[in-house]
Design a protein around this nucleic acid. Structure first.
Lengths: 228, 228
DNA sequence: CTTACATAGTGTATGTTATACACTTACAAG
DNA sequence: CTTGTAAGTGTATAACATACACTATGTAAG
């Protein structure tokens, strides 16, 4: 730390990529966009990414990516730093180190945003992710691992639920992410006992069966809990 | 991602800082070194850090820091990426983004290395950390939080134990990090039931009381478990 | 060689939490 | 008013966490 950064040492560009996840049609999905950067990447799917600008922190860049590339209001998404990828040849042209972010957005919003997208942007089922540009396949895998692991002991899943929801919807989110079925009674007891949600007393309408009570989160602050 | 990095965009230097932790004298400690970089930092304590070199990944830099600054063989330490700090003014002179690493080293080795250090390098009790340069206080706090949280559900503590150890020594490590006393019988039952350690059958020698059995880890691979 | 000292090592009873499992309720539609 | 569909609920059992105190085994000193 006893040498400052001379201009010639500024060899690595700094970027941010976002792995934005949602649960749509009961499947965990990731936002992908197609890039066209010959010779290495001709019409190749990739995560949204950008260099970090001089007046931005890494998370600022992540928010800008959501807004600019996917027209997603960053207020609608939860973002947390995932991992910094620094493999020397991760970008075939320049040395670029990337601070990857994990993003989450409720499926209800994801579906709406999707309608405004051009063809080179989509929600992609995590089971069907094609080979991605750069090391973005690693990033996506890391993000899904993190999500699966954190969902069991934090309230991170809450970033993927709408303001109000039924317990069945919440359970379906957990089932989609963990990719396994959960017991209805045990799940309900658990999430209610934790004390992070409360009923808003209203019931869902327009369904041809017994209407479910609606719930909301008491706090959106990220917390360590023990969900499952 | 459709613009490559032109020279003028290479505004941020990239660095790595290491929060190297150990347990010594039953206290959790962090490696600090004094830097002298007027006008901002005159003889100020800081974490070991360096710019990332063109041919290095972030973890390569972390290993080099251990070797060059503290004369510590990186093979003796466990390193994991902690967090990337990108606050715009975190370095008062230049824009520097830092990929921080959490490092762990057994107390037995920490004590030996310490003897070879000059006065501007020391193990500092985490309860007594002075005000550090840059955002290094944040880094140290983040590292300790991470360590405290991961010790309960991973085998991360194993990076701080010597090859062979007694169960009492292992328990003292947990107590130092968690800063609370644990029940001897329950602790022993738990760590043995987990199946990550095994006795080497030998007993510790040179103690004026009943000698303890020595144990070792079956695997050093990082694992998700449930220690406490 | 006997005794004092210091830490190692061990089991059980009780409370808490996790799991497995099936029927009744409430509404809409026809 | 009957049918269809998902909502909502309780209990018994097993697994795990906690609290707690004495005996065993070595060294050292007299």
């Amino acid at each position: 730390m006893n040498k400052r950064a001379p201009e010639k040492m500024r060899f690595a560009a700094l970027a941010t990529d976002v792995v934005l996840c949602t649960v749509l049609d009961e499947k965990l999905k990731v936002l992908l966009m197609q890039i066209d950067l010959p010779p290495h990447y001709k019409n190749t799917w990739a995560l949204p990414g950008s260099l970090i600008r001089p007046n931005e922190t890494a998370i600022d860049t992540a928010k800008r990516l959501l807004a600019d590339k996917a027209k997603i209001d960053p207020k609608h998404a939860y973002l947390e730093q995932l991992y910094t990828f620094s493999r020397i040849d991760r970008d075939p042209r320049n040395r670029v180190v990337s601070v990857a972010y994990l993003g989450l957005i409720p499926g209800s919003r994801a579906a709406i945003y999707e309608r405004s997208w051009p063809k080179n942007m989509k929600w992609c089922d995590i089971e069907k992710i094609p080979s991605l540009a750069y090391d973005h396949t690693d990033m996506a895998r890391t993000a899904v691992e993190r999500l699966k692991s954190k969902i069991a002991y934090t309230n991170i899943a809450f970033g993927m639920m709408p303001e109000q929801f039924t317990l069945t919807e919440l359970q379906e989110l957990y089932e989609a992410i963990l990719n396994k079925e959960l017991d209805k009674r045990n799940f309900r007891r658990k999430v209610i006992d934790i004390g992070l949600i409360e009923t808003v007393k209203n019931k869902i309408t327009g369904v041809a069966h017994r209407p479910a009570l609606l719930y909301r989160f008491k706090s959106k602050k990220s917390q360590i809990i023990d969900v499952l």
